[in-house]
Design a protein around this nucleic acid. Structure first.
Lengths: 221, 221
DNA sequence: GGACAAAGAATGAATCTACGTTCATTGTCA
DNA sequence: TGACAATGAACGTAGATTCATTCTTTGTCC
């Protein structure tokens, strides 16, 4: 049926433009938040930062909510791609995989520090539907962490009463790097934060018999 | 010098009224946040909820910032009184004291769930001075937790490379009960949350030789 | 190839709305 | 009657949204 699915080249071009604009605007939002804080993102400021007119934003986003939602979703998508990749690269050992996953979480957070905080603003902006979407995505993107803990437990290397709680705590600690950056930055770099938190978390759950094997993770230099 | 400190009964009455109004308004703010979320607190809504006029608020608070600041300070003051009391009541054992402190933190958070979240809104509302004050207070009120961990370490019952990090993490986990209530409430009560988190945190730091002694804390029923 | 439409992209001043704040007025004791 | 408490309509402003207009690209016909 060639008629029902005509591939018009204009459409492709249009979609390309739409994607370009979208990226352009989200990048501008990120820069703005980085420089002036996340509450400084007004539509006029965003337009100025992106070098476009206010009206144009509304061609590509339905509302300010939509823009903020997209910023948050972008972060969550970064989790969805970066974390599995890091796990993959960490080899077979479940504990190493878990460690890599946590490190990846923290790194993504660090790269989107201000955007990450957006999630915690129970703003009027985000309508219930959008908020639910974010919550769902957040739970979904924490799945790798959960899986890693579970498989560590199954293999007998880890030992814990509540794997899901362990996983969620790690997620929280990654977020905390953004939320409490003013506190942690006084005494730690990102790398130090990652290894300190990891050492602490692992020492709660590494099985006694495997402690020697992970000595490097359990007592960071 | 009777002249420099005349005790006029009117002044006492006035101060009493001021305190009453202040409490009335902060209570209304709490109710409003509870019912409609913390972003629904406009001056007009607050006035309506408290059953007073908008103008009156400005007789007792300089600005909206002041009101929000007062709400937050109220929570921090609840920490400052409740936590030491709980520690006191827990006896001599450093680990029991630490546990009691954490439980108290969580309980206070639970009682002021929506107000607690306010701290995380890097709102334009709170000016830098107010924000600094909050940060300072927050660090101050976490001192008992730090002290408890430290004395646990000193007595040899606990073992950790970074007591301050342990203490701050516990504070974070208490906050998390408010921040991520939508997640935790699906599977836990406050009591379950407290003992699960405590079990996890303690199993990372209780010295091997003391594990049996705290078996009840380490594996909650 | 050049003139001429549409269609779509982009603009930005004007509009609309939601508050925070003020203050002229009214109420209430002592 | 004066001092203080309280009111709430009116004001000011920031910022989200709209839309009439202009610019640009694409397609069409001679």
């Amino acid at each position: 049926m060639p008629h029902t699915s005509i591939e018009r080249p204009q459409d492709a071009a249009r979609q390309m433009l739409a994607e370009h604009r979208s990226r352009q605007l989200l990048d501008a939002a990120a820069r703005l938040m980085e420089r002036e804080g996340s509450e400084a993102v007004s539509m006029q400021a965003l337009a100025a930062e992106a070098g476009v007119s206010v009206g144009l934003i509304y061609r590509y986003f339905g509302s300010k909510d939509d823009v903020l939602l997209a910023v948050i979703v972008q972060v969550l998508e970064a989790f969805a791609t970066q974390v599995p990749r890091a796990i993959e690269a960490a080899g077979e050992d479940p504990v190493r995989r878990l460690s890599a996953a946590f490190a990846a979480y923290c790194t993504v957070i660090d790269e989107h520090r201000h955007a990450a905080v957006l999630t915690y603003r129970e703003s009027k902006s985000l309508d219930p539907a959008g908020r639910d979407r974010i919550k769902r995505l957040e739970v979904e993107t924490s799945q790798p962490l959960r899986d890693a803990v579970r498989s560590g437990v199954e293999s007998g290397l880890l030992r814990t009463a509540d794997p899901d709680l362990v996983a969620y705590n790690l997620l929280l600690l990654a977020h905390a790097w953004a939320l409490k950056h003013w506190y942690f930055e006084k005494t730690m770099t990102l790398e130090a934060y990652i290894s300190a938190q990891l050492a602490l978390a692992l020492s709660a759950i590494v099985a006694p018999t495997s402690r020697r094997r992970y000595a490097d993770l359990l007592s960071p230099s």
